[in-house]
Amino acid sequence: MRRSVILETVIRAELPVLLVVSLYLLFAGHNQPGGGFAGGLVAGAAYALALVAGGAGAVRRTTRFQPTTLLGAGLLLATLTALVPLFTGNDLLEHDVLSADLPVLGTVKTTTALFFDTGVYLVVTGLVLLVVTALGPGDLDVGDVDATPGDGT
């Protein structure tokens, strides 16, 4: 696949923007449309776009994680959020209201459900990354170590 330098540049510039959008969806989800799932999809889609346009190298430069790591970490985060209240005498998945004074945003009120939603976000991002790389162009493998070019020759 021939790579378009312009496209690659544009996408690389766009990548942070999309990531910010996805994070916004994640954080605003509790009060606005959005949530971890939608956020994760956007983040995943951003990478997918980068993948299609820029190839594996580009993605590898921007992602520090294996997609499986994202999956595992997301599930772990969500599960821990579920489990922690058990050990403070509460119910599984019981959330606490958190409030914090942040410099720019002022007083932010949210709940520990945010951590849970972040877990969702990570897992969904991981899914999209894996799907795109698994079904994607054959020379763009990133997900699996044993699939690096040269294996088959």
Binding site: G29, H30, N31, Q32, P33, G34, G35, G36, F37, H95, V97, K109, T110, T111, A113, F116, D117, V120
Partner: peptide, 11 residues
């Protein structure tokens, strides 16, 4: 502590 009821249900 959430205004988006659907999201609150989900999470």
């Amino acid at each position: 502590a959430g205004r988006n009821v659907v999201n609150v249900i989900v999470v």
